[in-house]
């Protein structure tokens, strides 16, 4: 048996091989291109990929859309910021502890809202997001209110802190790659299969002795924790958090990422994040223009390629290649 057929037989091996290749390429970038401003952008891409991959897991496997990922990003960011700044826990530990908080909140909210579907679920999670934003703004004793929190410790442990972009680059990208691998494995495992089945018919899945409701809550928690990790990494990288971190606009931006990369593709989420980061960086001087471009693009993509821009383009390329009958 050759290595290739061995890899093909096992989804985990295939995922690992792909992600390893991807990570190697990413890690070689600074070696080839040297240190520059682009590193900063690349770090943001690594961070923003996490909530995007989280939402992609949820929408890709369960077919549902939540508008709560901005909120969980903010909870992850604030929780880790508060734990490390106010209590003095080291950032690595606070990042992990923050995820326990995210998971608990997600479990509580998930148990409540996941009985809803479609746009009812979207509206319920939107309401939750608004509550989180309000609490962050108003509970100023804990969160710093509208001013937010400053001087959040840099990522690091045992007296060694990341101080430069290149260090963050080499810490954050492996984390993102590992979580990507986690998401890919989950998606191709029996859990992913069960979730895909649940979205077609919960009663049938139940009749097979599978607790559909537990799976739905499980994927919601995992998906929210992805956003929470992103938030914590963000807080320790930029060193401050403000209520804008968890705003509805940010939640909409994450949806926009999926509209670009496809609602059911983890790799597509990465592509979407790259596109939106470039858009943010170069095309948009003013917040108003950003809103216009974001809004118009969202409309155009949904109308022309309802499954997302990237899958739509891929389908288009295929049908051109094989002719109209394909």
């Amino acid at each position: 048996m050759s290595i290739l057929t061995f890899i093909k037989q096992d989804a985990v091996h295939l995922n690992t091989a792909r992600v390893a290749l991807f990570l190697t390429a990413i890690l070689l970038v600074p070696v080839v291109f040297g240190i520059g401003y682009y590193l900063n952008m690349m770090i943001f891409i690594a961070i923003l990929s996490l909530p995007a991959m989280g939402l992609s897991l949820l929408s890709g496997l369960s077919g549902q859309l939540a508008i709560s990922h901005g909120a969980f990003f903010a909870i992850g960011a604030y929780a880790s910021a508060i734990l490390s700044t106010n209590i003095g826990i080291n950032p690595v530990l606070s990042t992990l502890l923050a995820q326990m908080i995210v998971a608990l909140v997600a479990a509580a909210i998930g148990a409540v809202v996941l009985r809803l579907r479609s746009h009812y679920l979207a509206i319920a999670t939107l309401s939750f997001a608004i509550i989180v934003e309000l609490v962050i703004k108003e509970w100023s004793g804990l969160t710093g209110g509208m001013q937010g929190m400053l001087n959040i410790p840099a990522m690091g442990a045992l007296g060694r802190e990341a101080t430069s972009d290149i260090q963050y680059y080499y810490i954050y990208w492996p984390i993102t790659a590992l979580l990507l691998l986690f998401a890919l494995n989950l998606s191709s495992s029996r859990i992913g299969r069960a979730l895909r089945a649940i979205r077609e018919g919960e009663p049938i899945v139940d009749s097979l002795g599978i607790q559909a409701a537990e799976y739905k809550i499980g994927i919601y928690i995992i998906s929210s924790v992805f956003a929470g990790v992103g938030g914590a990494l963000y807080a320790h990288f930029v060193g401050f958090v403000t209520p804008a971190t968890g705003s509805i606009m940010f939640a909409i931006e994450i949806i926009m990422v999926l509209a670009l990369g496809g609602f059911d593709r983890l790799w597509g989420a990465l592509v979407g994040v790259v596109l939106i980061t470039l858009l943010n960086e170069y095309a948009l001087g003013f917040a108003d223009y950003k809103k216009i471009i974001l809004g118009v693009t969202l409309i155009a993509v949904m109308l022309v390629f309802p499954r997302g821009l990237l899958p739509g383009l891929i389908d288009l390329a295929r049908s051109n290649k094989y002719g109209r009958t394909a």
Binding site: I292, V296, T297
Partner: peptide, 28 residues
């Protein structure tokens, strides 16, 4: 009319897009 064959949640996303685009245009 244009979105006749798109899922309701897809249309919800379209109206979200319309909302923020309108905000941006109004601000201009």
């Amino acid at each position: 009319i244009l979105a006749a064959r798109i899922s309701l949640i897809g249309v919800l996303i379209i109206t979200i897009g319309a909302s923020i685009a309108t905000q941006g245009i109004a601000a201009r």
